[in-house]
């Protein structure tokens, strides 16, 4: 049985302008990238644009990903999220109230229903991340959602939620630190590569 090439090997292939390496990375991560872009933008065409941009950027500048900064999957999703939020802010779509309607509904806490072409990390990791998010309080999850999916700053969240800025800051800090603790406890950090 042929061993699947690792992300690192495929990234080395990209450096050598190996087209096949890009195809394999696309097959491995396109579904995760597209799903996240679609969830943030709620627009299929815009999500396709973001997905295309993310992979072409990877093709043009594979050196922008540094292995020392962590596994490729989370890095790609971070790039995807930043591009999608960038687009969202430019379009101004999410600048209209009420943001508070987003309370507690954004993260998908159910079974992630992985596709057949999906790389193991996204389905197994997603299950654990969702379980970890489920361990947070609603108010903690809410601030992460508003920042992560809507691109709101802490000050904007304080305005939207009618809370003192200090309270929002505390919630953001404790929520993300708590999440890190849970994922460390569950060994997710060792599974993402």
């Amino acid at each position: 049985m042929t061993r699947e090439p690792s992300d690192q090997e495929l990234m080395a292939g990209l450096q050598q302008r190996d087209h096949q390496a890009l195809a394999l990375l696309y097959d491995r991560y396109a579904r995760s990238v597209y799903s996240l872009a679609l969830h943030i933008l709620r627009d299929q065409a815009a999500a396709e644009d973001v997905t295309q941009e993310v992979f072409l950027q990877l093709w043009r500048q594979p050196e922008r990903y540094a292995h020392e900064r962590g596994p490729l999957g989370p890095w790609l999703l971070r790039v995807t999220r930043n591009r999608a939020i960038d687009l969202l802010r430019r379009s101004g779509r999410e600048r209209r109230p009420p943001y508070a309607d987003a309370r507690g509904v954004d993260f998908h806490l159910a079974d992630p229903s992985p596709g057949p072409d999906e790389h193991a990390w996204s389905s197994t990791v997603a299950t654990r991340v969702q379980a970890a998010l489920g361990e947070l309080s609603d108010t903690q999850r809410q601030v992460i959602e508003l920042a992560y999916f809507r691109g709101l700053t802490q000050r904007e969240m304080a305005d939207v939620l009618g809370l003192p800025l200090g309270t929002v800051k505390t919630r953001v800090r404790t929520a993300l630190r708590r999440l890190a603790e849970i994922l460390t406890r569950d060994g997710v950090w060792t599974d993402v590569g």
Partner: peptide, 22 residues
């Protein structure tokens, strides 16, 4: 923390992109 924020992106409903995009 950057890596953690990347992981959060997995917690969304999964949808395949159209095959033409590939």
């Amino acid at each position: 923390l950057d890596e953690l924020v990347g992981l959060l992106g997995t917690a969304v409903p999964q949808t395949s992109p159209p095959p033409s995009l590939r």
